[in-house]
Each structure stands twice: as structure tokens, then as C-alpha cells.
Design a protein around this nucleic acid. Structure first.
Lengths: 190, 190
DNA sequence: GTCTATATCTCGATAGAC
DNA sequence: GTCTATCGAGATATAGAC
């Protein structure tokens, strides 16, 4: 499918250069078609960006376990995602580049960014509160702050890993999650 | 000075839109001069970016205390910087936007970004090792990982704070640093 | 030191042939 | 569904008047 090869080209170029610095002509050339041929599938640059973000969300589809069953499961899951990310540089680079650009309220991906953070942050904070209700986490644990801190580690490590792939994102995040368990958990741990 | 008002305009625009999305004409208009007048002071867009990064580094000038005197002093200092940053949105926004763009090896600010991370990371890791030598930090503490994690928190929180200024960067970072002291410190703590 | 003027290029988007 | 052709706008950069 031509549409899909164009989408692949767009993901690659936007990941490496950012959205603002990537032109429709570049994408068309990388996909092996003319700019007008590309315009038939994606009538505007924003439409192309929308498809790219959709593609990213599909890959990152977070089948996060239901909270409340296993303590800290949302955090353990994030550690696994960090490990997966170390084998898919393109997606990490696309994400990091996108976040940097979309901080601006006028950016076409700003709404996407707000939704992304709301979803991730809400998921982690809810996980803490569910475990607090089940007695697995101390009730004086600051759910909001813990969620924000772990999301920050996840995002910040991706930047460092893009600059130096020897950075072990999974190990560092794992270390932090295990410390959270000992500091705020109620279950005795060795 | 016209050069300085142009620089202020460039900082403002690049912070809000990013470097790639900002044009020389925009900067000239915001500074109240013609594009050619701007070109006299900054002969190229890269030259303008260089001055902007220099300006940022000057403000962020990290008079980090000498390591080895007070335990965890480099980390306590970072907590203070997080507090200061909550009162200078423009600099935080410029930094975050710049990081996102400069991940690409071809970006004109890529070398600046590598130097920045090397400096910050080296500073924190050296602080840990100095405290280990003085007996304030357990010798089995992973200095590299701790440094990377704290830098990640600092960077990641700035993104979240830009989206929602009610996020207390200083409090969250402070919480983490205090936990590091209890987990890895040798000095007894209440 | 700041301007006008211009050169050269590329952008995103559209119209219409096939 | 892909192409050629073209639009108008805006980019960086340079040359030269004042």
C-alpha cells in the first residue's frame, strides 16, 4: 500500500527532524511518489501528523493490567515498557521529538500531548490509590507526586538513552520502582 | 542596545515555537527592525541560535558548590534550581523545546546538548563518588544510575510543569532526594 | 549600523489531465 | 490514484545605498 509506505516515511522523517522541520516534499520523495501523490492520501500536513500520532499510539498501545489485582502492577508494567522501548529507537525518538515541539499551545499536536499525559498520569495515580484501598500501599503515600515522578523518570531517561544507547532505562526505572515498594509498601520485603 | 532586544525577541520566539519553526523575519519584526538589520548583528540563523544558547547558559549558570564538603550538596543544589525554575517559565520552555529538537544529530544545537548533559551528569555522579570517599554515602550506591535518574526527574518534571504550572517541581524532586539520603546515606536520619 | 532591493529557493496547497 | 503544472507566500542570504 502506498499510503502505508508514505506513513512509514513520515514517521521516520518526523522522528529524526521533528514535525516543523519536515516538509511534505521530503516525505513524498522518501516514499517514492510526487508531492501531489502524497497530497491525495493526506490532504494537509496536519492530516499527515494525525496519522503519524495514531500510528505511534497503536504501537504504544498500553494494555495496562487492571489495577487492584497485583500491587504496583501499573509501575511494573511501565518497567517492562521501558525495556521494550530499548528495542524500538524510532518510536522513542518520535515521542521525544513530538513532546518537545508540542509543548507550545499552538502546536497541532498539543491536544494529543495533553491527552497522553492525562492518560498516563491518571493511570499511575489510580494504581496507587487502588493499592492503598487494598492495604498494599501506605495511605500516607502521595499518589499524585509518585505518579508524576515516575512519568518524569520515564520521559527523561528516553532523552538520555537517545544520546547514549548504553543507558539502561529499564534498570534505572526498575531500581526506582523497587525503592518505592520498600518505602511506601505495607507488605514486608527482604 | 538593538542587538540585545533582538536577542530577547529570539529567546521568546524560540522558546514558544522552537528553533525550526522560528524565522529570522519573525525575530526582526518582534525586535522592531528589518530582517536585514537583524542580519547585520547575526549573519545567519545558526549564529542567532548560538547567542540564544549562550544567553540560556548564562542564566542557568550553575554555581554548584564544591563537592565533598556537605553530603549530597549537588543534589540539594538541584532542588533549589528546580524552585528557581518555577519562577522563570521562559527559560524552562526554551530549554525543553531545545532538548526536543536537538536530539537529532544534525541539529545545530546537538553539540550544545551533548555538552550540557555531560556536564550535569558528570557533576552529580562526581558528587556521589566524593561523598562515598568521605564515608557519607554507602559504597555500593550506583553513582551513575542515581545521577541519571535525578537528571531524568529534573527534565521530565519541567515538561509536566509547562503543561500544568500547579505541578510542584521542587517538592517532587525534594521528596526524591530525601529518599536517596535515607536509602544510600550512612548518616543516621530521623 | 540600518535600510531597500533582490536573488534564489522551498514551502503547502490546488486544479485539472490521464 | 497518480501525475504535471502552477499558485502565492515566506524562507535565508547577499549586495549596495545612505
Amino acid at each position: 500500500m502506498i499510503r502505508e509506505s508514505a506513513l512509514r516515511a513520515a514517521v521516520d522523517l518526523i522522528a529524526r527532524q521533528g514535525f516543523a522541520a519536515t516538509s511534505m516534499s521530503q516525505v513524498a520523495e522518501a516514499a517514492g511518489i510526487s508531492p501531489s501523490g502524497l497530497a491525495h492520501h493526506f490532504p494537509s500536513k496536519k492530516a499527515l501528523l494525525g496519522a503519524v500520532l495514531e500510528h505511534r499510539d497503536a504501537i504504544d498501545s498500553d494494555p495496562s493490567p487492571a489495577p487492584g489485582t497485583v500491587p504496583w502492577c501499573a509501575f511494573d508494567h511501565l518497567v517492562e515498557v521501558a525495556g521494550l522501548n530499548m528495542q524500538r529507537r524510532q518510536i522513542v525518538q518520535l515521542y521525544t521529538t513530538m513532546i518537545g515541539e508540542a509543548v507550545s499551545p499552538d502546536h497541532p499536536a498539543h491536544a494529543w500531548m495533553l491527552g497522553h499525559y492525562d492518560a498516563v498520569h491518571t493511570n499511575l495515580a489510580a494504581g496507587v490509590r487502588a493499592d492503598q484501598a487494598n492495604g498494599h500501599i501506605r495511605t500516607d503515600a502521595p499518589a499524585e507526586q509518585i505518579a508524576r515522578e515516575v512519568v518524569a523518570i520515564m520521559d527523561g531517561l528516553q532523552v538520555q538513552w537517545l544520546l547514549d544507547e548504553s543507558v539502561d532505562m529499564k534498570a534505572i526505572l526498575h531500581m526506582r520502582v523497587e525503592q518505592l515498594k520498600t518505602v511506601w509498601g505495607t507488605t514486608p520485603r527482604g
